[in-house]
Nucleic acid binder design. Structure first.
Length: 291
DNA sequence: CCACAGGACGGCT
DNA sequence: AGCCGTCCTGTG
């Protein structure tokens, strides 16, 4: 599908299609990528900091080894998936989706760390993106492992053990508001293994969701975000205000409940519902659909 | 000063 | 099962 090589300590992926970091980092799935003054992107994931350059055709991952690329970044950027095929299937007999895909052609579904996604989306509730990013950054800076990088010190997202040791008092510095109690309890639940990952990753969607709902502070919407953005499932359709609006305006013609939208998505998009959600979110938010 | 933001909890009916 | 007041904090 594409060729890659290691060169001077960097990894270069040539002629990568169906990718654009701006699209991928702005479709609501991640919070820890920033644009650098030189146009590169700096992100933190899986305890690593990554300097990424995109020239519209090739992707350069600076200071990365082939091992790291194959074990972490290849799955992270979902490079093994045929997005051309997936787009064709979603676009068939659906002019709305075809347009959304044309607009966000570079969206990819990132495979992110389960615990990080769980805590991050728990924080996201009733909050805007800038504040979500701020809180996650504070949490990492205060309790995560420092990662030295030429553009400054980055901080890894704290691991489950570290999170489970934090007191409510410790958490005050991140200014999460009432969500600190959710972080406190959910972290302990995650570290203790209360969430059965065999069920989460199992074949039955409803069982996966029920398993996520065990976490204190996690409701229907956040449960779906965690399942989709950790790569546990792709047949999930999280509905936030943007998706709600774009569905009402371009598909249904009326405001619909979470359940109705999920039923529609399952029938209409099937196992690709998660990708459909990402294209629709990006399309709706960038074009301010419904505002 | 008030409304509301990429929701969820807990108590009520 | 469904409704609704309440929850921290920042921004407009």
């Amino acid at each position: 599908m594409y060729k890659w090589e290691e060169k001077d300590g960097h990894i270069i992926i040539y002629n990568l299609t169906n990718f654009d970091p701006f699209h991928t980092f702005h479709c609501g799935q991640c919070f820890r990528w920033n644009r650098l003054p030189n146009g590169h992107w700096l992100g933190v994931a899986y305890g690593l900091a990554l300097d990424l350059e995109w020239d519209g055709k090739n992707m350069i991952l600076y200071h990365t080894t082939p091992e790291q690329f194959l074990h972490i970044w290849h799955p992270y950027f979902d490079l093994g998936r045929d997005y051309g095929d997936l787009k064709a299937k979603l676009s068939q007999n659906d002019s709305v989706m075809a347009e959304a895909i044309r607009f966000g052609q570079g969206v990819r579904l990132l495979k992110q760390d389960f615990n990080e996604v769980a805590i991050s989306f728990l924080i996201s509730q009733n909050n805007g993106i800038p504040r979500i990013r701020k809180i996650i950054e504070s949490l990492s800076a205060a309790f995560g492992r420092p990662i030295e990088h030429e553009s400054g010190t980055c901080y890894a997202f704290p691991d489950p053990k570290r999170l489970s040791e934090l007191t409510l008092e410790d958490l005050e510095v991140i200014r999460a508001g009432y969500r600190d109690k959710y972080i406190y309890r959910a972290s302990r639940q995650l570290y203790s293994g209360e969430v059965n990952m065999d069920i989460v990753l199992g074949p039955d969607k409803e069982s996966s969701r029920q398993e996520m709902l065990k976490l204190f502070g996690v409701g229907e919407k956040v449960a779906d975000c965690i399942l989709l953005f950790s790569g546990a499932r792709t047949d999930i359709f999280p509905v936030d205000r943007w998706v709600k609006r774009v569905m009402a305006e371009l598909y249904l013609g009326h405001e619909a409940s979470y359940e109705e939208l999920n039923d529609f998505a399952q029938k209409h998009f099937g196992g690709l519902a998660g990708f459909a959600q990402q294209y629709l979110f990006y399309y709706a938010r960038e074009n301010k659909i419904g505002m």
